[in-house]
Design a protein around this nucleic acid. Structure first.
Length: 629
RNA sequence: GGCGGCGUAGCUCAGCGGUAGAGCGGGGAUCUCAUAAGUCCUAGGUCGGGGGUUCGAGUCCCUCCGCCGCCA
């Protein structure tokens, strides 16, 4: 069986970040799972290198577009091996083969009458590389880039999406798992309720030259999305390499939710217009939030994959990414969470199980796999318990529910740890029950073996080390079959204890991301230092009078201990005469502001209760100027 | 404005008609093979508010509040 999986090709206007890493790790894990199942896998990733934003990023970097994309593509290409990503091919949209295919497809669609040429007038945002509708504008500016759009009138080529809209709707209805998780399918169905606008797929060279030239009209280059999506075909050699058919029939895309529309609407319709079947499935994941800020490539708020790997190791990072995020939903990323999670599940539970088991084998059986011997009550339960969790794991992983799959595996680890505790091999040794001891350790070694095989797609390096320590050859052992068969270890095989697999991290290594934690309330939290910036003091009101012409304002003279004037909006709640002599709390280092002609050098604190405004006052006798904090 | 989602123990979330659950954190106990790890016990949370359907509702319906997404 063939299996074809893709990541999006990443737009090279920014460095690789956590979001790219997650998508790519997901694709890699699925690819490895399929290989474990004996399937033939093609895993495609790469870079998207055309468009206006690239030109501008290149200019900023002081490079030509060509130099710039070469450099950035290399950055991506070098990042993935660090994360143990094993792709089949890395495609770049600037490759001649890809460019030829795009031109070929444009020519084909043009001949088939799928494309129309027309004039369009509108407001263009260079940041978005698209025209905006007047309704989208916020204060006359682009809602995303906060810059005013430029009025432009141009002739362009359009792709009439609505012609295939009914077909797509029908396809979606007939294939409930075409887009998943289902929430995103619903979203696309919603999109298709309204007629689709024609998609403008050209850009005049006068405005943008960094793109693929239209084959039948050299005045234009191709819109980046139209160009980019076709990588999924050019990457497998369509149409020249005949093996493309085998792969295409099994195509599954992994994307983040921000590019749902191009993948769920434009792309299937493009394929339809080309006379090709749609891909098989589209898997959509959410965002990693760094506290509150979104992981967006436009914001500088990114976590560098290579930094994480250097701090925590690829396997830990891969495990955490899959375990922490419910695929499809957003999740929060922090290094603290990474440390907590991997300490608990990898160091304490799994790693410790490995180490204690191998230690006992070393100590009690001179480092050789003991004889399984006779089965006792509890032995079969352990084996069946672990195997059923592993079956469950494979099921969940196959459906992209990685967090649940790994939870199932943790249950298996837990079963084994309980088994150790219940059987207490050290007691058996003491009592000289060697036959029993032998069986117990054999059971545990088998547990480690099947766990290692099952985990290999997620943590390939750790799995390999573990299998080697068990005296096995990873190449021979890596199959789903081996993970689901109990009793493959041969007695007498030498095993190594090896170093601790997942050393416990004492405390989170300093945060890579610098931003303030926020509570569920959405309220931003600040360190104490932040509060200390405010000079809060006790002041005594020495004079008070109404500000002429206002209902709410009082002009106060306050001693704190120097005298200063300030304006307070409390006239509706306090009469001037009742304030004189009162001790109040004021903010003494506010930038002075002129209010109604009066210079206000501070602000008085008051509580806004249901029964009106109440001044905040010190509870007892305090001298003016006393610090509050 | 339209469509949709979410709001359950300190934190992250599962449950989706029948006596409130898991993991983490916190508290207690215990074994000693082990990475101060394991194992066991322990969370008394108006399941956002209100109303309704039902013998019975986090679980269905309505409504309100608060977040969020997509579209316009």
């Amino acid at each position: 069986m063939a299996f074809y999986i893709t990541t999006p090709i990443y737009y090279v206007n920014a460095e690789p970040h956590l979001g790219h890493a997650y998508t790519t790790v997901v694709a890699d894990v699925v690819a490895r799972l399929k290989r474990l199942q004996g399937e033939e896998v093609f895993f495609l990733t790469g870079t998207d290198e055309h468009g206006d934003k690239i030109v501008r990023a290149a200019r900023t970097a002081g490079l030509s577009p060509r130099e710039y994309v070469d450099r950035m593509a290399e950055r991506f290409r070098q990042t993935w091996p660090l994360l143990h990503i094993q792709y089949s091919r890395f495609i770049r949209t600037t490759e001649p083969y890809h460019q030829r295919l795009v031109q070929q497809v444009l020519a084909q669609l043009y001949e088939k009458g799928e494309l129309t040429f027309g004039e369009y007038e509108g407001l263009y945002c260079f940041g978005c590389e698209r025209f905006l509708t007047p309704k989208e504008l916020v204060d006359g500016c682009c809602p995303d880039h906060h810059t005013p759009p430029t009025p432009l009138k141009e002739a362009n080529y359009f792709f009439d999406l609505s012609r295939h809209q009914e077909w797509l709707l029908d396809h979606l209805r007939r294939h409930p798992d075409f887009i998943q998780p289902s929430g995103y399918r619903e979203e696309v169905l919603g999109l298709l309720r309204e007629p689709l606008e024609p998609l403008c797929i050209s850009r005049p060279k006068s405005r943008l030259s960094w793109g693929i030239e239209f084959p039948f009209d050299p005045r234009f280059v191709t819109y980046v999305w139209f160009d980019a999506l076709l990588n999924y075909l050019s990457g497998i050699g369509y149409p020249e390499d005949p093996s493309w058919q085998k792969w295409w029939a099994a195509a599954e895309h992994v994307i983040a939710k921000d590019i749902l529309k191009p993948h769920a609407v434009y792309w299937p319709i493009m394929l339809r217009a080309m006379g090709l079947p749609p891909y098989r499935r589209l898997h959509v994941h959410g965002y990693w939030n760094l506290h509150e800020a979104k992981m967006s490539k436009s914001l500088g708020n990114v976590v560098r994959p290579e930094v994480l790997v250097s701090r925590y190791g690829a396997d830990r990072v891969r495990y955490f990414l899959l375990r922490e995020m419910a695929f499809g939903q957003d999740a929060e990323f922090s290094e603290e969470a990474l440390v907590l999670r991997t300490n608990a599940e990898l160091a304490n539970d799994l790693g410790n199980l490995v180490f204690r088991t191998l230690s006992m084998v070393k100590k009690y059986f001179q480092g050789q796999v003991p004889e399984p011997g006779r089965e006792f009550p509890g032995d079969r339960e352990l084996a069946q318990g672990i195997l059923s969790r592993i079956r469950n794991y494979f099921e969940e992983m196959g459906e992209f529910r990685f967090h649940r799959g790994l939870a199932a595996l943790n249950e298996a680890v837990n079963l084994a740890n309980r088994y150790v505790d219940r059987e207490a091999p050290w007691e058996l040794k003491k009592k000289g029950e060697l036959e029993r001891l032998s069986r117990v350790l054999y059971q545990l070694l088998e547990g480690l073996r099947v766990l290692a095989v099952a985990l290999s797609p997620v943590m390939p390096r750790s799995a390999e080390i573990l299998l080697q320590n068990l005296g096995l050859s990873p190449e021979e052992e890596l199959s789903v079959e081996a993970a689901l068969t109990w009793g493959r270890l041969r007695p007498g095989t030498p095993v190594e204890r090896g170093p601790v697999l997942f050393p416990r991290l004492e405390r989170p290594i300093q945060e890579a991301s610098k931003s303030s934690p926020e509570e569920k309330t959405g309220q931003e939290l600040y360190p104490l230092e932040e509060f200390k910036k405010w000079d809060l003091r006790v002041g005594e009101v020495v004079a008070a009078e109404r500000v002429p012409g206002t209902d709410r304002l009082l002009k106060l003279t306050v001693r704190c201990p120097e005298e200063r004037t300030l304006v307070a909006g409390i006239a509706e709640h306090y009469r001037p005469e009742e304030l004189v002599g009162k001790k109040v709390v004021l903010v003494a280092n506010l930038r002075p502001a002129r209010i109604r002609g009066v210079l206000s050098e501070g602000m008085i604190l008051a509580a806004k209760g249901s029964s009106g405004l109440k001044l905040v006052v010190p509870e007892g006798e305090v001298e003016p100027g006393a610090e509050v904090g």
